[in-house]
Design a protein around this nucleic acid. Structure first.
Lengths: 157, 157
DNA sequence: TGACAATAGTCGTTATAACAAGTATGTTTT
DNA sequence: AAAACATACTTGTTATAACGACTATTGTCA
């Protein structure tokens, strides 16, 4: 098994343990995301698009305001309008101005969107099970706890 | 302290512990990267550009082939040519075709590039120290070990 | 040696991300 | 009720990422 230093062929050791942790998190996120993206791509979706659809599925029939979708994204999207525009063009979501506050726009998932999303449920679940299958429940829980702790030093969450 | 479920305002629990770990890694990477990017930006660099400069500083005077730079990046860049082009335009690196194998192009860091990079060393080191300051050495080491383990299920590193 | 394959990088194109400025609607304040 | 402010989204612009096709050079082998 490779450690980070071998993987990125760095000859010098890291300048600090903290730095190693940071780079390690970035690299792990990148590698794992690449595999997930491959599945999203099979349905012609990007990662963000997939996440928006999941959020809207969770939100149900009434849909959600643009800003709220943005808030719930794992990674913020600086341009929710055009992201939703692309999803609407693919007929995966609907948009309509909120009748109560006409500044707002509510988005909701379409039947087609729902079916695309459902088709990805199993592959995604399987990927997650498979790639972490060699870790025990205790390890996974500990990893979760450490990650939450690791980012709690930043207060601009 | 917020857990991931609160942060992204998800009402339903995650469909699996594995999925939670995955999302947790992505979110942590995103939040931590945002802070680092802020520092890079202060020197008019993106994260990838900063990493390329660090790689070239490590490589020394002889420089490195484009492909090798690409290999050593934490996250792969699909277009190293134009990335190096931008750095060259900023006079932070030089490029010359490799005299031995004229297909290759070697890049090396300039004096200016070196000084920009050096100016970021302290802020970056401080950021890493600060944001992980509340974690013990044991915790950091454990986090590192778990991360390496977490991505070792993927064999396309 | 000459054809074919492999390697190293470049470039064209389209999509997406980032940032800032703009527009429409709603809220507050005096 | 009008002015000032706040909110919610949209749009313009520029930079960067992703993907594939293309060029130049080197290696292989019949």
């Amino acid at each position: 098994m490779l450690n980070l230093q071998d993987e990125i062929k760095q000859s010098k050791p890291f300048s600090s343990l903290e730095e190693e942790v940071y780079l390690n998190i970035q690299r792990t996120a990148y590698i794992l995301a690449a595999d997930s993206e491959r599945i999203f791509r099979s349905a012609n979706l990007t990662g963000v698009q997939y996440n928006v659809l999941r959020i809207l599925r969770g939100a149900g029939k009434n849909g959600l305001a643009c800003s709220e979708i943005s808030n719930r994204l794992i990674t913020k999207d600086s341009d929710i309008t055009r992201l939703l525009g692309r999803l609407e063009k693919m007929e995966l979501i609907n948009r309509c101005t909120n009748p109560v506050d006409r500044r707002g726009v509510d988005a909701s998932i379409t039947k087609k969107g729902l079916s695309v999303l459902t088709s990805l449920d199993e592959p995604i679940a399987k990927l997650n099970k498979d790639r972490f299958g060699h870790l025990t429940v205790e390890m996974l829980e500990q990893l979760n706890a450490l990650l939450v702790l690791a980012r709690s030093g930043d207060f601009n969450i």
